[in-house]
Design a protein around this nucleic acid. Structure first.
Length: 336
DNA sequence: CGGCTTTGACCAGCGC
DNA sequence: GCGCTGGTCAAAGCCG
């Protein structure tokens, strides 16, 4: 994929960022947390306003940017997400690290250097910056053949004639990982996906599912897996950029702009039945799953007539209501 | 019947 | 070289 801001080229646009080694991503939620690794994965996290995040104070995580600015560059090649560049209030902060920093070991020092996630949501990116798209059309039998055919051209993956350099690693598309508290594995995100595989994950009872965007010529993929350490957390990893707009019913609202690439099928947040939270909002706003570290200002409870009223978690939703209104003006009622 | 999921097999990369 | 693992393919089956 050549368009858009894949890879490190986005550094400038989004300010300084650091990447920790080999994409080792560690989450520490106090209960042990979990970690997963993705080579070339950069990561950034939403930290609680004044919280201590897994032993790392949020204000010690140096460079922050906003999610929206990131989405703007990475997830929204059309630039529509610019719309979302509302002041992220105190809610969202980003830590994106570059390779330069902590590029040594693959995870040995991860505990030290890897940013730690908030319990409720986080996003991580990878800067693959590569093509990666052309290889999805191989037939089973064609694969061996393909290796032969490519021998003349660029390097075949077998690294036939060179003494194995690390740099020859196959480039990857930009990746974004969302940690979402959700009962549902496959979160609606406005795009249509076709499942093309499922694999058991090592050390995890939960399988990992592989999806591909069904839109022709859109090579975006996504992986969905459930954290084995925290089964209420779904890890959704997007790879690549959509070459089209979301077919979601949210079109015309701002909601889909804020969504990770890909939600359809779910009603807008204000139409969700009581006690049911929109997974994406849950993810982004960390609403219904307050962490022990969370220090929220005391706010009055939402009115009973609010569709999302009625759960113990409601107060946290209400806390972020102003932000929600900023982000979803057309879907959120006027005033709670 | 088309679109989607399931599932076993295959392939590539990597570490030992 | 071998085994492990992640990622992908594609036939078969399911479903509206």
């Amino acid at each position: 994929m050549s368009s858009g801001g894949g890879g490190g080229g986005d550094q400038g646009r989004h300010g300084v960022y650091h990447q920790h080694g080999h994409g080792q991503l560690t989450r520490n939620d106090g209960a042990g947390g979990y970690e997963f690794s993705n080579d070339d994965m950069e990561s950034f996290f939403f930290n609680q306003p004044e919280g201590v995040v897994g032993g790392v104070r949020a204000d010690e995580i140096e460079p922050y940017s906003s999610l929206t600015s990131y989405l703007q560059g990475f997830l929204d090649p059309t630039g529509l997400a610019r719309h979302l560049d509302v002041p992220a209030k105190h809610e969202l902060s980003v830590d994106v690290r570059t390779h330069d920093q902590d590029s040594q070991g693959t995870g040995s020092a991860a505990g030290e250097s890897a940013p730690l996630l908030t319990p409720n949501s986080s996003v991580s990116f990878s800067s693959g910056g590569g093509d990666g798209e052309g290889k999805s059309h191989r037939s089973k039998k064609g694969r061996a053949q393909e290796a032969d055919n490519q021998e003349d051209g660029e390097s075949s993956k077998k690294a036939n004639n060179k003494p194995k350099k690390k740099a020859e690693k196959r480039p990857r598309l930009p990746r974004v990982s969302f940690l979402t508290k959700s009962e549902v594995d496959h979160l609606e995100d406005g795009y249509r996906w076709r499942k093309y595989g499922q694999k058991a994950v090592k050390n995890s009872p939960y399988p990992r599912s592989y999806y591909r965007c069904t839109t022709p010529k859109c090579g975006v993929k996504k992986r969905v897996e459930r954290s084995y350490q925290d089964p209420s957390t779904v890890i959704t990893t997007y790879e690549g950029q959509h070459t089209h707009h979301s077919p979601a019913s949210f079109r015309g609202t701002s909601a889909h702009l804020f969504m990770p690439p890909g939600v359809h099928g779910l009603p807008p947040p204000h139409l969700m039945p009581p006690g049911v939270f929109h997974p994406e909002l849950m993810s982004m706003m960390r609403m219904p799953y307050p962490s022990p570290n969370m220090h929220l200002p005391s706010v009055p409870p939402p009115p009973h007539h609010h569709p999302m009223a009625g759960t113990p978690l409601q107060q946290h939703h209400f806390t972020d209501y102003a932000l929600l209104q900023d982000l979803f003006p057309s879907t959120m009622p006027n005033n709670p």
